[in-house]
């Protein structure tokens, strides 16, 4: 009984943090602060992954999203000019934004409506970092090696783009 209460409390705290921080991302006066709130969103979602016993996913969430992606966003903010602050949003942008969000919500609702609630829990087959590793290095070796090619391509693309930037 105590155990059940514990994870429900943890869920509500994390869900509240994630939602509150998401709102702050949009409401923050300074876009830089917004990006920092985004870090909190990523961290809370990582916590939710742990509650779902998806430990490996939580580690990736922290490492890649809270770490790398956020660094990219912060860098992008400090590299752009700040003097365009407070520009009016045009009607066209507003309509495009509403349409985009509506489409995204429709897309996300699809799986949510298909699941019979309350959803049954799928028991993990073992420690999940181990399971991921085992299938990654035995059954899925070729996709794994292709990932390194994708990373190589990404890096060459980045080098190519920044090279032009410096050269011009």
């Amino acid at each position: 009984m105590r155990k059940v209460a514990g994870d429900i409390i943890a869920f509500y705290v994390l869900a509240f943090l994630a939602i509150a921080a998401s709102i702050m991302v949009m409401e923050a006066q300074d876009i830089f602060h917004g990006a920092l709130y985004l870090a909190l969103v990523f961290a809370s979602v990582a916590g939710l992954f742990i509650l779902l016993t998806a430990e490996f996913l939580a580690a990736i969430q922290i490492l890649v999203y809270a770490g790398a992606v956020l660094v990219l966003i912060l860098f992008a903010i400090v590299f752009t000019r700040r003097d365009r602050k407070g520009e009016e949003v045009s009607r066209g942008h507003m309509i495009a934004g509403v349409l985009l969000v509506a489409g995204l919500v429709a897309l996300l609702l699809q799986p949510l409506l298909r699941v019979p609630w309350p959803a049954s829990l799928i028991e993990p087959s073992g420690p999940n970092t181990y399971s991921v590793g085992l299938s990654l290095f035995t059954d899925y070796v070729i996709p794994f090696e292709i990932v390194s090619l994708a990373l190589l391509a990404a890096l060459i693309g980045a080098v190519y783009l920044s090279k032009r930037e410096v050269g011009s």
């Binding site: 990736i60 490492l63 890649v64 660094v71 990219l72 590299f79 700040r82 970092t129 590793g133 990373l151």
Partner: peptide
């Protein structure tokens, strides 16, 4: 506004960060 040259370091960092993710399993 900071120099855009720093961005390539951020991009390199992301690539090697993703590599690190695979080192865990």
């Amino acid at each position: 506004q900071f120099d855009v040259q720093y961005y390539i370091y951020a991009l390199l960092f992301v690539v090697f960060d993703v590599e690190t993710v695979f080192l865990y399993p």
